[in-house]
Design a protein around this nucleic acid. Structure first.
Length: 497
RNA sequence: GACUCACUAGCUCAACUGGCAGAGCAACUGACUCUUAAUCAGUAGGUUCACGGUUCGAUUCCGUGGUGGGUCACCA
Protein backbone atom coordinates (compact mmCIF):
# COMPACT_ATOMS: atom_id res chain seq x y z
CA UNK A 1 0.00 0.00 0.00
CA UNK A 2 1.14 3.58 0.47
CA UNK A 3 4.75 3.69 1.49
CA UNK A 4 6.09 1.52 -1.27
CA UNK A 5 8.13 2.99 -4.10
CA UNK A 6 5.96 3.40 -7.14
CA UNK A 7 7.35 4.22 -10.57
CA UNK A 8 6.29 7.69 -11.65
CA UNK A 9 4.08 6.44 -14.48
CA UNK A 10 2.03 4.42 -11.97
CA UNK A 11 1.35 7.37 -9.74
CA UNK A 12 -2.12 8.69 -9.65
CA UNK A 13 -3.09 12.09 -10.97
CA UNK A 14 -2.43 13.98 -7.74
CA UNK A 15 1.02 12.57 -7.17
CA UNK A 16 1.95 13.16 -10.78
CA UNK A 17 0.90 16.80 -10.52
CA UNK A 18 2.99 17.29 -7.39
CA UNK A 19 6.07 15.83 -9.04
CA UNK A 20 5.52 18.14 -11.98
CA UNK A 21 5.37 21.11 -9.61
CA UNK A 22 8.59 19.92 -8.05
CA UNK A 23 10.22 20.02 -11.49
CA UNK A 24 8.75 23.47 -12.08
CA UNK A 25 10.43 24.69 -8.89
CA UNK A 26 13.70 23.18 -10.01
CA UNK A 27 13.42 24.89 -13.38
CA UNK A 28 12.93 28.18 -11.51
CA UNK A 29 16.18 27.55 -9.65
CA UNK A 30 14.42 26.74 -6.36
CA UNK A 31 15.44 23.62 -4.45
CA UNK A 32 12.24 21.77 -3.51
CA UNK A 33 13.99 20.20 -0.54
CA UNK A 34 15.68 23.02 1.31
CA UNK A 35 17.96 23.42 4.26
CA UNK A 36 17.92 25.03 7.67
CA UNK A 37 15.58 27.86 8.48
CA UNK A 38 15.89 30.27 11.38
CA UNK A 39 12.64 30.04 13.29
CA UNK A 40 11.98 32.89 15.71
CA UNK A 41 8.34 32.21 16.57
CA UNK A 42 5.99 29.28 16.76
CA UNK A 43 2.25 29.51 16.23
CA UNK A 44 1.63 29.61 19.95
CA UNK A 45 4.32 32.28 20.48
CA UNK A 46 2.48 34.51 18.04
CA UNK A 47 -0.76 33.97 19.92
CA UNK A 48 0.89 34.58 23.27
CA UNK A 49 2.62 37.77 22.21
CA UNK A 50 0.12 39.37 19.85
CA UNK A 51 -3.35 38.22 20.84
CA UNK A 52 -3.96 41.58 22.52
CA UNK A 53 -3.47 43.66 19.40
CA UNK A 54 -6.38 45.65 18.06
CA UNK A 55 -7.38 46.74 14.57
CA UNK A 56 -5.34 45.88 11.52
CA UNK A 57 -2.11 47.50 12.52
CA UNK A 58 0.95 45.42 11.77
CA UNK A 59 3.17 44.24 14.57
CA UNK A 60 6.46 42.46 14.91
CA UNK A 61 8.49 40.51 12.44
CA UNK A 62 8.21 36.77 12.87
CA UNK A 63 9.79 33.77 11.20
CA UNK A 64 7.73 30.58 11.30
CA UNK A 65 8.13 27.16 9.80
CA UNK A 66 5.71 24.31 9.46
CA UNK A 67 3.32 22.37 7.29
CA UNK A 68 0.67 23.98 5.11
CA UNK A 69 -2.65 22.45 6.13
CA UNK A 70 -5.18 24.45 4.14
CA UNK A 71 -5.17 27.06 1.41
CA UNK A 72 -8.08 29.41 0.86
CA UNK A 73 -7.36 31.21 -2.39
CA UNK A 74 -8.96 34.48 -3.46
CA UNK A 75 -7.16 35.24 -6.66
CA UNK A 76 -4.67 37.93 -5.80
CA UNK A 77 -4.69 37.24 -2.07
CA UNK A 78 -4.93 33.98 -0.17
CA UNK A 79 -5.20 32.68 3.34
CA UNK A 80 -3.58 29.50 4.49
CA UNK A 81 -3.18 27.52 7.69
CA UNK A 82 0.28 26.69 8.95
CA UNK A 83 0.84 23.95 11.51
CA UNK A 84 3.87 23.61 13.73
CA UNK A 85 4.58 21.70 16.91
CA UNK A 86 2.65 24.24 18.98
CA UNK A 87 -0.52 24.33 16.90
CA UNK A 88 -1.72 26.29 13.93
CA UNK A 89 -1.82 29.91 12.81
CA UNK A 90 -3.43 31.62 9.85
CA UNK A 91 -1.07 33.15 7.30
CA UNK A 92 -1.89 35.61 4.52
CA UNK A 93 -0.26 35.74 1.12
CA UNK A 94 -0.90 38.91 -0.85
CA UNK A 95 0.17 39.78 -4.36
CA UNK A 96 0.77 43.45 -3.42
CA UNK A 97 3.14 42.40 -0.67
CA UNK A 98 4.95 39.51 -2.32
CA UNK A 99 5.18 40.71 -5.92
CA UNK A 100 4.32 38.79 -9.07
CA UNK A 101 7.18 36.32 -9.00
CA UNK A 102 6.86 35.27 -5.37
CA UNK A 103 3.09 35.08 -5.56
CA UNK A 104 3.38 32.80 -8.56
CA UNK A 105 5.63 30.58 -6.46
CA UNK A 106 3.02 30.58 -3.72
CA UNK A 107 0.42 29.35 -6.15
CA UNK A 108 2.50 26.26 -6.80
CA UNK A 109 2.37 25.28 -3.14
CA UNK A 110 0.29 22.30 -2.10
CA UNK A 111 -1.36 21.31 1.12
CA UNK A 112 1.23 19.29 3.00
CA UNK A 113 4.26 21.29 1.83
CA UNK A 114 6.68 22.40 4.52
CA UNK A 115 7.36 26.10 4.34
CA UNK A 116 9.53 28.64 6.13
CA UNK A 117 8.02 32.10 6.13
CA UNK A 118 8.43 35.52 7.61
CA UNK A 119 5.95 38.27 8.01
CA UNK A 120 4.15 40.72 10.23
CA UNK A 121 1.30 40.02 12.61
CA UNK A 122 -2.14 41.60 12.27
CA UNK A 123 -5.76 40.88 13.00
CA UNK A 124 -8.27 40.37 10.24
CA UNK A 125 -11.63 42.14 10.28
CA UNK A 126 -13.10 38.97 11.66
CA UNK A 127 -10.59 39.11 14.52
CA UNK A 128 -8.34 36.23 13.49
CA UNK A 129 -4.70 36.66 14.40
CA UNK A 130 -2.83 36.31 11.12
CA UNK A 131 0.70 36.58 9.80
CA UNK A 132 0.98 38.62 6.62
CA UNK A 133 3.78 36.93 4.74
CA UNK A 134 6.52 39.16 3.33
CA UNK A 135 8.74 36.33 2.18
CA UNK A 136 8.69 32.55 2.23
CA UNK A 137 10.75 29.58 1.24
CA UNK A 138 9.73 26.05 0.26
CA UNK A 139 11.56 23.76 2.67
CA UNK A 140 10.14 20.37 1.69
CA UNK A 141 7.82 19.53 -1.15
CA UNK A 142 5.15 17.03 -0.18
CA UNK A 143 4.55 14.51 -2.95
CA UNK A 144 1.47 12.78 -1.59
CA UNK A 145 -1.95 14.21 -0.82
CA UNK A 146 -2.91 14.35 2.83
CA UNK A 147 -6.10 12.82 4.20
CA UNK A 148 -9.10 15.06 4.34
CA UNK A 149 -8.98 18.19 6.46
CA UNK A 150 -12.45 18.04 7.97
CA UNK A 151 -13.08 14.38 8.77
CA UNK A 152 -9.41 13.66 9.37
CA UNK A 153 -8.06 10.16 9.06
CA UNK A 154 -10.40 7.56 10.55
CA UNK A 155 -9.21 4.28 9.10
CA UNK A 156 -7.60 2.74 12.19
CA UNK A 157 -5.38 0.50 10.15
CA UNK A 158 -3.77 3.45 8.36
CA UNK A 159 -3.68 5.42 11.62
CA UNK A 160 -1.60 2.70 13.29
CA UNK A 161 0.53 1.68 10.33
CA UNK A 162 1.25 5.22 9.16
CA UNK A 163 1.16 7.05 12.46
CA UNK A 164 2.84 10.07 10.90
CA UNK A 165 -0.33 10.70 8.90
CA UNK A 166 -2.45 10.31 11.99
CA UNK A 167 -0.26 12.84 13.78
CA UNK A 168 -0.38 15.32 10.90
CA UNK A 169 -4.14 15.39 10.51
CA UNK A 170 -5.59 14.41 13.90
CA UNK A 171 -4.59 16.99 16.51
CA UNK A 172 -6.04 14.99 19.42
CA UNK A 173 -3.60 12.18 18.66
CA UNK A 174 -0.72 14.57 19.17
CA UNK A 175 -2.33 15.55 22.48
CA UNK A 176 -2.46 11.93 23.56
CA UNK A 177 1.23 11.42 22.98
CA UNK A 178 2.10 14.70 24.64
CA UNK A 179 0.13 13.44 27.64
CA UNK A 180 2.09 10.20 27.45
CA UNK A 181 5.31 12.14 27.64
CA UNK A 182 4.02 14.20 30.59
CA UNK A 183 2.97 11.04 32.42
CA UNK A 184 6.38 9.46 32.04
CA UNK A 185 8.12 12.65 33.13
CA UNK A 186 5.80 12.95 36.14
CA UNK A 187 6.61 9.40 37.27
CA UNK A 188 10.36 9.97 36.84
CA UNK A 189 10.31 13.28 38.64
CA UNK A 190 8.34 11.89 41.53
CA UNK A 191 10.69 8.95 41.99
CA UNK A 192 13.83 11.03 41.50
CA UNK A 193 12.56 13.51 44.07
CA UNK A 194 12.10 10.66 46.54
CA UNK A 195 15.64 9.35 46.21
CA UNK A 196 14.92 6.46 43.91
CA UNK A 197 17.76 5.78 41.50
CA UNK A 198 16.93 4.98 37.90
CA UNK A 199 18.82 2.04 36.45
CA UNK A 200 18.89 0.08 33.21
CA UNK A 201 19.06 -3.71 33.30
CA UNK A 202 19.45 -6.07 30.35
CA UNK A 203 16.66 -6.65 27.90
CA UNK A 204 18.45 -9.75 26.61
CA UNK A 205 19.11 -12.54 29.06
CA UNK A 206 19.43 -16.28 29.24
CA UNK A 207 16.62 -16.52 31.81
CA UNK A 208 13.31 -14.68 31.45
CA UNK A 209 12.07 -14.46 35.01
CA UNK A 210 10.10 -12.21 37.31
CA UNK A 211 6.67 -12.86 35.86
CA UNK A 212 4.39 -15.59 34.60
CA UNK A 213 4.52 -15.17 30.85
CA UNK A 214 5.92 -16.70 27.70
CA UNK A 215 9.01 -14.88 26.46
CA UNK A 216 10.24 -14.02 22.99
CA UNK A 217 13.28 -16.06 22.04
CA UNK A 218 16.18 -14.90 19.92
CA UNK A 219 19.65 -16.17 19.21
CA UNK A 220 23.07 -14.69 19.78
CA UNK A 221 25.34 -15.90 17.00
CA UNK A 222 28.77 -15.24 18.52
CA UNK A 223 27.90 -16.93 21.82
CA UNK A 224 25.71 -19.47 20.03
CA UNK A 225 23.10 -19.28 22.77
CA UNK A 226 19.40 -18.56 22.78
CA UNK A 227 18.51 -15.37 24.57
CA UNK A 228 15.14 -14.23 25.84
CA UNK A 229 13.67 -10.76 25.82
CA UNK A 230 12.85 -9.81 29.37
CA UNK A 231 9.28 -10.30 30.61
CA UNK A 232 9.91 -8.20 33.74
CA UNK A 233 12.70 -6.24 35.38
CA UNK A 234 12.01 -7.65 38.83
CA UNK A 235 14.84 -10.08 39.53
CA UNK A 236 17.64 -7.79 38.36
CA UNK A 237 16.27 -4.88 40.36
CA UNK A 238 16.20 -7.00 43.51
CA UNK A 239 19.81 -8.03 42.80
CA UNK A 240 20.60 -4.32 42.88
CA UNK A 241 18.88 -3.94 46.25
CA UNK A 242 21.08 -6.80 47.49
CA UNK A 243 23.99 -4.77 46.12
CA UNK A 244 23.04 -1.83 48.30
CA UNK A 245 21.01 0.42 46.02
CA UNK A 246 18.22 0.72 48.52
CA UNK A 247 15.82 2.56 46.26
CA UNK A 248 15.89 1.68 42.57
CA UNK A 249 13.51 1.85 39.68
CA UNK A 250 13.48 1.05 36.02
CA UNK A 251 11.02 2.36 33.50
CA UNK A 252 11.26 0.49 30.27
CA UNK A 253 10.00 -1.95 27.75
CA UNK A 254 9.15 -5.51 28.59
CA UNK A 255 8.05 -8.17 26.11
CA UNK A 256 5.52 -10.95 26.46
CA UNK A 257 4.74 -13.44 23.76
CA UNK A 258 1.00 -13.53 24.30
CA UNK A 259 -2.27 -12.55 22.72
CA UNK A 260 -3.10 -8.99 21.79
CA UNK A 261 -6.23 -7.05 22.62
CA UNK A 262 -7.28 -3.60 23.78
CA UNK A 263 -5.20 -3.96 26.95
CA UNK A 264 -2.24 -6.02 25.73
CA UNK A 265 0.55 -5.27 23.28
CA UNK A 266 3.48 -7.68 22.92
CA UNK A 267 5.85 -4.93 24.03
CA UNK A 268 4.78 -2.49 26.69
CA UNK A 269 6.23 -0.14 29.25
CA UNK A 270 6.41 -0.91 32.93
CA UNK A 271 7.94 0.91 35.81
CA UNK A 272 9.19 -1.29 38.62
CA UNK A 273 10.19 0.25 41.91
CA UNK A 274 11.96 -1.29 44.92
CA UNK A 275 12.28 0.26 48.34
CA UNK A 276 14.44 -1.43 50.96
CA UNK A 277 13.16 -1.49 54.53
CA UNK A 278 9.64 -0.89 53.30
CA UNK A 279 6.77 -3.31 52.85
CA UNK A 280 3.68 -3.66 50.70
CA UNK A 281 1.74 -1.07 52.68
CA UNK A 282 4.42 1.53 51.91
CA UNK A 283 4.23 0.57 48.27
CA UNK A 284 0.46 0.94 48.19
CA UNK A 285 0.96 4.46 49.49
CA UNK A 286 3.60 5.04 46.85
CA UNK A 287 1.32 3.69 44.10
CA UNK A 288 -1.41 6.10 45.13
CA UNK A 289 1.00 9.00 45.24
CA UNK A 290 2.53 8.27 41.85
CA UNK A 291 -0.86 7.87 40.18
CA UNK A 292 -2.22 10.98 41.89
CA UNK A 293 0.88 12.97 40.97
CA UNK A 294 0.76 11.86 37.33
CA UNK A 295 -2.92 12.72 37.04
CA UNK A 296 -2.32 16.15 38.58
CA UNK A 297 0.57 16.86 36.25
CA UNK A 298 -1.25 15.72 33.13
CA UNK A 299 -4.84 16.73 33.84
CA UNK A 300 -4.66 19.07 36.82
CA UNK A 301 -7.06 16.82 38.70
CA UNK A 302 -7.25 13.26 39.97
CA UNK A 303 -10.83 12.86 38.76
CA UNK A 304 -10.87 11.31 35.32
CA UNK A 305 -13.62 10.40 32.94
CA UNK A 306 -12.80 7.09 31.36
CA UNK A 307 -15.11 5.96 28.58
CA UNK A 308 -18.00 7.77 30.18
CA UNK A 309 -17.31 6.64 33.75
CA UNK A 310 -16.11 9.12 36.34
CA UNK A 311 -13.25 7.75 38.40
CA UNK A 312 -11.35 9.43 41.21
CA UNK A 313 -7.77 8.23 41.08
CA UNK A 314 -7.05 10.19 44.24
CA UNK A 315 -8.43 7.67 46.68
CA UNK A 316 -8.49 3.91 46.73
CA UNK A 317 -10.10 1.38 49.03
CA UNK A 318 -8.12 -1.56 50.37
CA UNK A 319 -9.64 -4.99 50.83
CA UNK A 320 -8.29 -8.51 50.87
CA UNK A 321 -8.97 -10.89 48.03
CA UNK A 322 -10.69 -13.38 50.31
CA UNK A 323 -12.93 -10.70 51.84
CA UNK A 324 -13.94 -9.25 48.50
CA UNK A 325 -14.76 -12.72 47.17
CA UNK A 326 -16.73 -13.40 50.34
CA UNK A 327 -18.68 -10.16 49.81
CA UNK A 328 -19.47 -11.09 46.23
CA UNK A 329 -20.24 -14.79 46.67
CA UNK A 330 -20.79 -15.46 50.33
CA UNK A 331 -18.04 -18.06 50.22
CA UNK A 332 -15.01 -17.97 52.51
CA UNK A 333 -12.40 -19.92 50.58
CA UNK A 334 -9.73 -19.45 53.22
CA UNK A 335 -11.97 -21.30 55.70
CA UNK A 336 -11.37 -24.42 53.63
CA UNK A 337 -9.13 -27.06 55.17
CA UNK A 338 -8.77 -29.14 52.01
CA UNK A 339 -8.69 -28.60 48.26
CA UNK A 340 -11.82 -30.74 48.00
CA UNK A 341 -13.77 -28.23 50.11
CA UNK A 342 -12.55 -25.37 47.93
CA UNK A 343 -13.46 -27.26 44.78
CA UNK A 344 -16.93 -27.89 46.14
CA UNK A 345 -17.38 -24.15 46.75
CA UNK A 346 -16.17 -23.32 43.27
CA UNK A 347 -18.45 -25.96 41.76
CA UNK A 348 -21.37 -24.45 43.61
CA UNK A 349 -20.54 -21.05 42.13
CA UNK A 350 -19.92 -22.64 38.70
CA UNK A 351 -16.36 -21.29 38.67
CA UNK A 352 -13.95 -23.18 36.45
CA UNK A 353 -10.56 -24.19 37.84
CA UNK A 354 -7.67 -26.46 36.93
CA UNK A 355 -6.78 -29.73 38.63
CA UNK A 356 -3.37 -28.32 39.54
CA UNK A 357 -4.99 -25.44 41.47
CA UNK A 358 -4.83 -25.57 45.25
CA UNK A 359 -7.08 -23.62 47.59
CA UNK A 360 -5.26 -20.42 46.68
CA UNK A 361 -5.53 -20.99 42.96
CA UNK A 362 -9.25 -21.62 43.31
CA UNK A 363 -9.69 -18.48 45.42
CA UNK A 364 -7.92 -16.54 42.67
CA UNK A 365 -10.13 -18.15 40.02
CA UNK A 366 -13.19 -17.09 42.02
CA UNK A 367 -11.82 -13.56 42.28
CA UNK A 368 -11.23 -13.35 38.56
CA UNK A 369 -14.60 -14.82 37.69
CA UNK A 370 -16.79 -13.01 40.18
CA UNK A 371 -15.06 -9.82 41.29
CA UNK A 372 -12.35 -8.46 39.05
CA UNK A 373 -14.39 -6.74 36.38
CA UNK A 374 -16.65 -5.06 38.91
CA UNK A 375 -13.75 -3.12 40.47
CA UNK A 376 -14.42 0.15 38.69
CA UNK A 377 -13.34 2.68 41.30
CA UNK A 378 -9.72 2.40 42.40
CA UNK A 379 -9.12 -0.40 44.88
CA UNK A 380 -6.18 -2.30 46.28
CA UNK A 381 -6.83 -6.01 46.50
CA UNK A 382 -4.47 -7.55 49.05
CA UNK A 383 -3.51 -10.93 50.44
CA UNK A 384 -3.06 -12.93 47.26
CA UNK A 385 -2.58 -16.66 47.71
CA UNK A 386 1.05 -17.77 48.04
CA UNK A 387 0.34 -20.32 45.33
CA UNK A 388 -0.01 -17.64 42.66
CA UNK A 389 2.63 -15.28 44.11
CA UNK A 390 5.99 -17.05 43.92
CA UNK A 391 8.08 -13.93 44.56
CA UNK A 392 6.02 -12.43 47.38
CA UNK A 393 6.65 -12.82 51.09
CA UNK A 394 4.17 -14.82 53.10
CA UNK A 395 1.81 -13.10 55.47
CA UNK A 396 3.19 -13.58 58.99
CA UNK A 397 -0.24 -14.63 60.30
CA UNK A 398 -1.27 -16.94 57.45
CA UNK A 399 1.37 -18.62 55.29
CA UNK A 400 -1.23 -19.50 52.63
CA UNK A 401 -1.41 -15.85 51.58
CA UNK A 402 1.17 -13.19 50.84
CA UNK A 403 1.69 -9.54 51.66
CA UNK A 404 0.79 -8.54 48.16
CA UNK A 405 -1.54 -6.11 46.44
CA UNK A 406 -2.91 -5.45 43.03
CA UNK A 407 -4.32 -2.06 42.14
CA UNK A 408 -7.48 -2.20 40.06
CA UNK A 409 -9.18 0.57 38.15
CA UNK A 410 -12.09 0.05 35.75
CA UNK A 411 -11.79 -3.69 36.24
CA UNK A 412 -8.20 -3.67 35.07
CA UNK A 413 -4.97 -4.33 36.86
CA UNK A 414 -2.93 -1.17 36.85
CA UNK A 415 -0.26 -2.09 39.38
CA UNK A 416 1.04 -5.05 41.32
CA UNK A 417 3.28 -5.00 44.34
CA UNK A 418 4.33 -6.89 47.41
CA UNK A 419 6.68 -7.31 50.24
CA UNK A 420 9.50 -9.12 48.51
CA UNK A 421 10.30 -12.66 49.47
CA UNK A 422 13.79 -12.38 50.94
CA UNK A 423 14.12 -15.88 52.40
CA UNK A 424 16.29 -17.78 49.91
CA UNK A 425 15.20 -21.16 51.20
CA UNK A 426 11.51 -20.35 50.77
CA UNK A 427 12.29 -18.80 47.38
CA UNK A 428 14.03 -21.91 46.16
CA UNK A 429 11.06 -24.01 47.23
CA UNK A 430 8.69 -21.66 45.42
CA UNK A 431 10.74 -21.90 42.23
CA UNK A 432 10.71 -25.68 42.57
CA UNK A 433 6.93 -25.60 42.86
CA UNK A 434 6.81 -23.45 39.75
CA UNK A 435 8.90 -26.01 37.91
CA UNK A 436 6.37 -28.65 38.89
CA UNK A 437 3.57 -26.42 37.59
CA UNK A 438 5.53 -26.09 34.38
CA UNK A 439 5.86 -29.84 34.09
CA UNK A 440 2.15 -30.12 34.78
CA UNK A 441 1.51 -28.11 31.63
CA UNK A 442 1.67 -24.47 32.72
CA UNK A 443 4.17 -23.07 30.21
CA UNK A 444 3.89 -19.65 31.81
CA UNK A 445 5.08 -20.76 35.24
CA UNK A 446 8.17 -19.02 36.56
CA UNK A 447 11.55 -20.50 35.74
CA UNK A 448 14.26 -21.30 38.28
CA UNK A 449 16.89 -18.58 38.58
CA UNK A 450 19.73 -20.03 40.64
CA UNK A 451 21.82 -16.89 40.66
CA UNK A 452 18.84 -15.02 42.08
CA UNK A 453 18.72 -17.53 44.93
CA UNK A 454 22.45 -16.98 45.44
CA UNK A 455 21.85 -13.24 45.63
CA UNK A 456 19.16 -13.77 48.26
CA UNK A 457 21.57 -15.97 50.21
CA UNK A 458 23.86 -12.97 50.57
CA UNK A 459 20.94 -11.10 52.07
CA UNK A 460 18.13 -9.01 50.61
CA UNK A 461 16.91 -6.45 53.14
CA UNK A 462 13.18 -6.45 53.82
CA UNK A 463 11.94 -4.71 50.69
CA UNK A 464 8.71 -3.58 49.12
CA UNK A 465 8.39 -3.78 45.36
CA UNK A 466 5.94 -2.42 42.84
CA UNK A 467 5.23 -2.58 39.12
CA UNK A 468 2.94 -0.20 37.28
CA UNK A 469 1.61 -0.69 33.76
CA UNK A 470 2.56 2.66 32.33
CA UNK A 471 0.59 2.29 29.09
CA UNK A 472 -2.55 1.42 31.01
CA UNK A 473 -2.11 4.44 33.25
CA UNK A 474 -1.78 6.61 30.15
CA UNK A 475 -4.94 5.04 28.72
CA UNK A 476 -6.83 6.25 31.77
CA UNK A 477 -5.31 9.73 31.69
CA UNK A 478 -6.06 10.17 27.98
CA UNK A 479 -9.42 8.37 27.91
CA UNK A 480 -8.04 5.97 25.29
CA UNK A 481 -10.11 2.82 24.73
CA UNK A 482 -7.23 0.76 23.34
CA UNK A 483 -3.59 0.38 24.35
CA UNK A 484 -2.79 0.90 20.65
CA UNK A 485 -3.99 4.46 21.00
CA UNK A 486 -1.21 5.23 23.48
CA UNK A 487 1.57 3.43 21.57
CA UNK A 488 3.03 5.39 18.68
CA UNK A 489 3.69 2.26 16.66
CA UNK A 490 1.59 -0.62 17.98
CA UNK A 491 2.53 -4.12 16.89
CA UNK A 492 0.88 -4.92 13.55
CA UNK A 493 0.89 -7.88 11.25
CA UNK A 494 2.88 -7.13 8.10
CA UNK A 495 0.90 -6.51 4.96
CA UNK A 496 1.27 -9.45 2.57
CA UNK A 497 3.07 -8.59 -0.66
C1' G B 1 -6.62 -19.74 18.20
C1' A B 2 -12.50 -19.34 17.78
C1' C B 3 -16.61 -16.33 16.57
C1' U B 4 -18.22 -11.86 14.37
C1' C B 5 -18.21 -7.26 11.58
C1' A B 6 -15.64 -4.38 7.95
C1' C B 7 -12.66 -3.46 3.34
C1' U B 8 -15.80 1.05 -2.82
C1' A B 9 -11.59 7.45 -5.91
C1' G B 10 -5.85 10.23 -2.10
C1' C B 11 -9.44 10.95 2.43
C1' U B 12 -14.72 10.65 4.56
C1' C B 13 -18.80 8.02 2.96
C1' A B 14 -23.31 6.45 -0.58
C1' A B 15 -25.12 2.71 -4.20
C1' C B 16 -32.97 -0.85 -2.57
C1' U B 17 -34.72 -7.60 -3.37
C1' G B 18 -28.22 -8.90 -8.44
C1' G B 19 -29.12 -4.39 -13.54
C1' C B 20 -24.09 0.93 -16.86
C1' A B 21 -20.27 2.68 -9.38
C1' G B 22 -21.90 8.23 -6.99
C1' A B 23 -21.25 12.61 -3.54
C1' G B 24 -18.33 15.96 -0.35
C1' C B 25 -13.32 17.26 0.56
C1' A B 26 -8.62 16.98 -2.01
C1' A B 27 -6.73 17.64 -7.41
C1' C B 28 -6.95 20.19 -12.30
C1' U B 29 -8.89 24.70 -15.51
C1' G B 30 -11.17 29.48 -14.93
C1' A B 31 -13.30 33.76 -11.74
C1' C B 32 -12.35 36.18 -7.11
C1' U B 33 -7.31 41.19 -2.72
C1' C B 34 -10.35 39.67 4.73
C1' U B 35 -11.23 33.97 4.00
C1' U B 36 -11.32 30.33 7.86
C1' A B 37 -15.09 23.11 6.25
C1' A B 38 -14.13 30.26 1.70
C1' U B 39 -17.46 30.78 -2.56
C1' C B 40 -18.96 30.20 -7.92
C1' A B 41 -18.51 27.60 -12.95
C1' G B 42 -16.34 23.50 -15.37
C1' U B 43 -12.94 18.94 -15.85
C1' A B 44 -10.65 14.56 -14.56
C1' G B 45 -10.07 10.63 -11.16
C1' G B 46 -12.14 3.32 -9.83
C1' U B 47 -8.44 -4.01 -10.59
C1' U B 48 -15.26 -1.90 -5.55
C1' C B 49 -8.89 -6.10 -0.77
C1' A B 50 -7.27 -10.76 -3.86
C1' C B 51 -8.47 -15.32 -6.27
C1' G B 52 -12.26 -18.67 -7.66
C1' G B 53 -17.64 -19.99 -8.20
C1' U B 54 -23.11 -19.17 -9.31
C1' U B 55 -25.55 -15.95 -13.00
C1' C B 56 -27.27 -13.25 -19.33
C1' G B 57 -25.18 -9.85 -15.73
C1' A B 58 -21.71 -9.59 -9.11
C1' U B 59 -19.65 -3.79 -5.19
C1' U B 60 -24.10 -6.85 -3.96
C1' C B 61 -24.92 -14.00 -3.50
C1' C B 62 -21.41 -18.42 -2.26
C1' G B 63 -16.26 -20.36 -1.22
C1' U B 64 -11.00 -19.69 -0.08
C1' G B 65 -7.26 -16.36 1.34
C1' G B 66 -5.41 -11.32 3.20
C1' U B 67 -5.54 -7.14 6.54
C1' G B 68 -8.10 -4.47 10.27
C1' G B 69 -11.88 -3.68 14.33
C1' G B 70 -14.73 -6.05 18.29
C1' U B 71 -15.89 -10.20 21.61
C1' C B 72 -14.11 -14.63 23.73
C1' A B 73 -9.99 -17.82 24.84
C1' C B 74 -4.97 -17.14 26.50
C1' C B 75 -2.82 -13.54 29.50
C1' A B 76 -1.40 -9.03 33.63
Amino acid sequence: MAGEQAPVEDLNEMMRVRREKLETYRSMGIAPFGHRYDVTYHAQDVRDEFSGIEDEEEHGNVRLAGRLMAIRGHGKASFATLNDRTGSIQVYFKLDVLGEEKYAQFRLLDIGDIIGMQGVVFKTRRGELTVKITDFELLSKSLRPLPEKFHGLKDVEIRYRQRYLDLIVNPEVRKTFEARNKTIKAIRRYLDAHDFMEVATPVLSTIAGGAAARPFVTHHNALDVDLYLRIATELNLKRLVVGGFERVYEMGRVFRNEGMDVRHNPEFTSVEIYQAYGDYTDLMDLTEEIVRHAAQQVLGTTVINYQGTEIDLGKAKRISMNDVVKEATGKDFLSCRTVEEARAMADELKIPYEQRHGIGGILNAAFEAKVEESLIQPVFITGHPTEISPLAKRNPGDPRITDRFEFFVYGRELANGFTELNDPIDQEERFTEQLQQREAGDDEAHVMDKDFITALEYGLPPTGGLGIGVDRLIMFLTDSPSIRDVLLFPTMKPVAE
